[in-house]
Design a protein around this nucleic acid. Structure first.
Length: 492
RNA sequence: GCCGCCUUAGCUCAGUAGGUUAGAGCGCCGGUUUGUGGAACCGGAGGUCCUUGGUUCGAGACCAAGAGGCGGUACCA
């Protein structure tokens, strides 16, 4: 008896959180990468590419989740039992690179980096497990001018990405202010205090979603959400909660007004006074350079979730309402952010190395544009040279080559189907025109060029298919030598 | 990770109280038109009804577990 052997067929499926990007989305991402990289390069930043994998201890303890180390990172052991991990951001690899090559590098070091990073987290709208960041960082510049430059850079990138004024805002704050507040209300400078501080950061991060009420609960004993899930709180006292919430709500409309409101909240704290001074210096530069026109704001409620920031922090927020496929409002989170991390390189070198940077979340930004229906018109396809006679491929290649030499995207049809299918192919590709050389044209040493855009327009006025076909609308013929001119005329 | 909802053709969905060969629209392929993308008309392909197990004479439908998707929450660009 013959037993039917079942051939194994893998189900074609994509890992969750990993997105295929094709057509418009891929083009949009590439354009955004180019725009951001162009801004950085024009400011004198040099490109640096590093590997996707790092030894896990080099990314190590500076993962955002200090309380859950290594979670959220894709990691495995190498042949020699060493833990390898896919990079989680572009900042940790930069710290490794700087520490490894410290002496010969120019200081300050200004570098930008482009590439995918990976996080093992639950995906959602605008949240992926693989996504592209474009970062700029300045290493070895301690003063607030470097931070101010990063903030202006962030605004420039948003502009270059095609946002109009008022469609985004860069919110600026300083970690030192919160440190001062927490110090004043008695959060200790210990391990335990660090855990508490992180919980406070994350609670404040949720102000826009949960409101002051929810955040107050997270600052205190904890909060139970609608689904019944409980989040442990930071355990602050009632006065502490009032102090922290009051601080986060101290933002005003102008840089000056906010600074004025923050100053008295710092009490006797020297760190706090220093933080306000830094913000004041940054604000002065933003004003002097004209970035205080609504593009930048001081907002004490911006803290950023990562633990490694030590000074000024900022976030680029979209101010355009986005909706999902069902028309419900969708939250995309920030499209970029950054700040100062003076201790990150010290892990390797023992001495603090001042550093500040900005990270542009290209994939999320593109997803937001997509949700907004703003990805722009589809790029026109190539001019398609029909392959009507299989033994004349060399002629077809020559024609496509001629068009390319004149700067036109052009290709020869590579399938095996007849003319009708080739026309459909060209249509689906968004080809602006096709070049038709069959038996008749060859015999007459001529070429026929059909303008598909015009043809599409004319088809709307023709009901009868006989007429549509025999009329051969939007089509011109001429001598073979005139190919380029015929195509150019058709595309005007 | 936790909680909730959902899963039938490529897509959007219908499928009556469990009862033969599971449907529609759109899309796709072909024909009318063997050298012409649209429209129209005609025809066709395409389904392990998410998976596994259970209840039943009989399950797309009922039950359980798992997977996947969506939303919230956690986390974050």
């Amino acid at each position: 008896m013959s037993k039917k052997v079942k051939t194994f067929r893998p189900k074609a499926r994509r890992p969750k959180g990993f997105e295929d990007r094709f057509g418009t989305l891929a083009n949009a991402e590439n354009a955004l990468i180019g725009a951001a990289a162009g801004v950085y390069a024009s400011h004198g930043f040099e490109p640096l590419s590093t590997s996707a994998l790092e030894y896990a201890d080099c990314l190590g303890k500076f993962l955002p989740d200090d309380d859950r180390p290594n979670e959220g990172v894709f990691a495995f052991t190498d042949d020699d039992q060493q833990w390898m991990a896919l990079r989680y951001d572009l900042t940790a690899p930069l710290a490794r690179f700087v520490a490894e090559n410290y002496d010969p590098l120019p200081k300050p070091l200004r570098r930008f980096a482009v590439g995918p990073v990976w996080r093992n987290e639950k995906p959602g709208p605008g949240r992926f497990r693989e996504f592209i960041q474009v970062d700029a960082d300045t290493i070895g510049a301690p003063g607030p001018a470097a931070d101010a430059e990063m903030i202006m850079l962030a605004a420039d990138v948003m502009d270059a990405a095609g946002l109009a004024r008022g469609e985004y805002v860069i919110r600026v704050n300083n970690r030192k202010l919160l440190d001062a507040i927490l110090g004043n209300i008695g959060v200790p400078d210990t391990e335990e205090g660090a855990v508490q501080r992180l919980r406070v950061l994350r609670a404040i991060d949720k102000l826009d979603r949960l409101g002051a009420d929810g955040v107050a609960r997270l600052l205190g004993d904890g909060r139970k959400d609608d689904s019944g899930d409980f989040t442990k709180g930071a355990g602050l006292s009632a006065q502490g909660i009032v102090a922290v919430l009051g601080y986060t709500q101290a933002g005003a409309d102008t840089l000056e007004a906010t600074l004025g409101a923050l100053q008295p909240l710092m009490g006797a704290s020297t760190v706090g006074a220093q933080g306000v001074e830094e913000l004041r210096a940054i604000a002065a530069l933003l004003q002097a350079c004209g970035y205080d026109d609504g593009r930048t704001l001081i907002d004490p409620s911006i803290v950023r979730g990562l633990g490694y920031y030590t000074g000024p922090v900022f976030e680029a927020d979209l101010r355009i309402e986005t909706v999902n496929e069902k028309g419900e409002p969708a939250r995309f989170g920030s499209a970029g952010g950054g700040g100062r991390y003076d201790d990150l390189i010290a892990r390797f070198r023992g001495q603090p190395v001042p550093a500040t940077g900005f990270s542009f979340g290209v994939s999320r930004f593109a997803a937001a544009l997509h949700a907004l229906g703003r990805l722009g018109p589809v790029e026109p396809g190539p001019v398609v040279v029909l392959a009507l006679e299989v033994d004349r491929m060399a002629d077809y290649f020559a024609m496509a080559s001629e068009l390319r030499a004149a700067g036109m995207r052009s290709e020869v049809y590579m399938g095996g189907s007849g003319m009708k299918a080739q026309m459909k192919y060209a249509d689906k590709r968004g080809a602006p025109a096709v070049v038709i050389v069959g038996e008749d044209e060859r015999a007459a040493n001529s070429v026929t060029v059909k303008n598909l855009v015009l043809g599409d327009k004319l088809s709307g006025q023709i009901e009868d298919n006989k007429e549509w076909r025999s009329g051969r609308p939007a089509q011109t013929s001429g001598p073979r030598e005139q190919l380029l001119k015929l195509v150019q005329d058709a595309l005007i």
